[in-house]
Computed example of a mutant assay.
Amino acid sequence: MIRLLIADDESLLRMAFRMVFEAEPDMEVAGEADDGEQAARLARYLRPDVVLMDVRMPGLDGIEATRRIVRDSPRSRVLILTTFDLDEYAFAGLKAGAAGFLPKNTRPPELLSAIRNVAAGEAALSPRVTRRVLERFAPQMTPGPAERDERLAQLTAREHEVLVQVARGLSNAEVAAALHLAEATVKTHLSRVLVKLGLRDRAQVVVFAYETGLVRPPPPTSDHRSHGGGQAQEDGT
């Protein structure tokens, strides 16, 4: 059974989420919060598997609440809700330790699938979308030389290769093809990377790679479209 905590200041939205989740045989709503302070407190008390976190709430916002939950309730994983896929809140949520983010208009089947993935220890979104968010907002980071993080010395050469490929947005199957490995072998290497670097999922792998300078954003382009629905589509698929 996946225990959920819903954090949103809109009571009607919380009610709608509850109705969707409680119709599922493997989910139960452990609690609700209408602000970040309450969400962080309930996460410590209820120990939910997944926290569905709005970012714009009165008082303590969802980003700081996520940071506190990741710090104080490590077994609980956070899914950030954003207006668009590619916005500053998605970036801030990943930096704060969220397992992923979803737009608020995500269809119920996709939302339920994301929650199950997160509860199983996976990231909630495709690595390409994570990468694109970081490419947009990575200039806000100030990465130094990759050698500055001593944890990297623990990785084997192959694990280092897998780390870089995952951070560039490749799926396990794509990493396997690029490195001429079996997909199961890639999964094994990635699991070891997570353990050695103290990371929880692919989303944190991407953030780590950008912060340490292993992967850097591409040069700026002339594409200055605003954060709209068109950008939320992934690679034209």
Rank of each mutant, 00 (worst) to 15 (best):
G62M: 08
L197G: 00
A7D: 13
L181H: 14
E10D: 14
E159V: 14
G144Y: 00
P217R: 01
A23D: 15
E135Y: 02
L46F: 06
M15N: 13
G97I: 02
G198Q: 07
G198W: 05
R192M: 15
P145L: 02
V51R: 05
L81Q: 12
T83Q: 07
A157V: 10
L179H: 12
L197R: 03
H180R: 13
S226V: 13
K196F: 07
A39W: 00
A65P: 13
D35T: 06
A157N: 07
V70E: 01
P108M: 08
A176M: 09
I63W: 03
S126M: 07
L60W: 02
L79Y: 04
R68L: 12
A176L: 03
G93I: 12
P48R: 01
E159Y: 11
D223E: 14
A138K: 04
P74I: 10
G228H: 10
A92D: 14
D149L: 05
E150F: 09
T82V: 08
G36H: 06
H180S: 15
I6V: 15
P218G: 05
S76P: 09
G229M: 12
A43K: 03
A30H: 03
S76D: 06
A167H: 08
E64Y: 09
A120G: 08
G228K: 08
Q140L: 15
R41W: 09
K187H: 11
P218Y: 13
Y210C: 07
A90F: 05
A173K: 04
S222M: 10
